[in-house]
């Protein structure tokens, strides 16, 4: 009898796995970055507005900051744009843009049209620096602490819920920095 029940037990396990798996299907589409908890790679990139003046990731050491990956070609970046505005107003930390796989003229036009809320933008037109950051789509948002460690990565457009979550996390990072 017990041996005959084995297939049923295996089957129930399979069904349980599939039920749980289906409920988490959306979350699993986002691939966790192995860079979490590790120092942000040292990148030196031109600024969008002043191409000759290079910006570096390590110059931000000492305070937490936000790095937001966007592109003028990216539909969802338009969707999250209002939250970028709110974030740079309310977070109290610099929100740096990472203009990815774009063209300068397009990016500048986009900013004129929708508003430039970022502190400044680093540009990566070829997309090589983005590989070092493990970027795989736009928009993506990184939180970096005062020691230059990547503490959080949000994948996809920021919405009401993830905005609140980001604000809490930024608060924690600021507390850590001021201690």
């Amino acid at each position: 009898m017990i041996r005959l029940l084995t297939p049923l037990v295996v089957f129930i396990g399979l069904i349980a796995l599939l039920i749980v798996g289906m409920q988490s299907a959306e979350e699993r589409k986002r691939v966790d970055s192995p860079l979490l908890g590790r120092p942000i790679p040292n990148l030196e990139l031109p600024r969008l507005h002043e191409p000759d003046n290079k910006a570096r990731t390590d110059e931000r050491l000492g305070e937490p900051w936000v790095l937001n990956v966007w592109g003028s070609w990216c539909q969802s970046c338009r969707v999250e744009h209002p939250y970028i505005l709110k974030l740079s107003e309310n977070a109290g930390v610099p929100v740096v843009g990472f203009n990815w796989k774009d063209e300068r003229a397009d990016a500048l036009r986009w900013l004129r049209q929708f508003g430039d809320a970022w502190a400044y933008h680093m540009v990566d037109f070829e997309g090589r620096a983005a590989i070092d950051l493990g970027v795989y789509g736009a928009p993506e948002t990184f939180l970096i602490d005062h020691r230059g460690i990547i503490r959080h990565k949000h994948i996809g457009p920021i919405d009401e819920q993830s905005y609140a979550d980001l604000m809490v996390r930024i608060g924690t990072l600021r507390d850590e920095a001021s201690q």
Binding site: G71, W73, C74, Q75, S76, C77, K101, G137, A138, G156, P157
Partner: peptide, 9 residues
């Protein structure tokens, strides 16, 4: 590019 952003999100 547009299509791709759509595809992802």
């Amino acid at each position: 590019f547009l299509c791709w952003a759509w595809c992802v999100w």
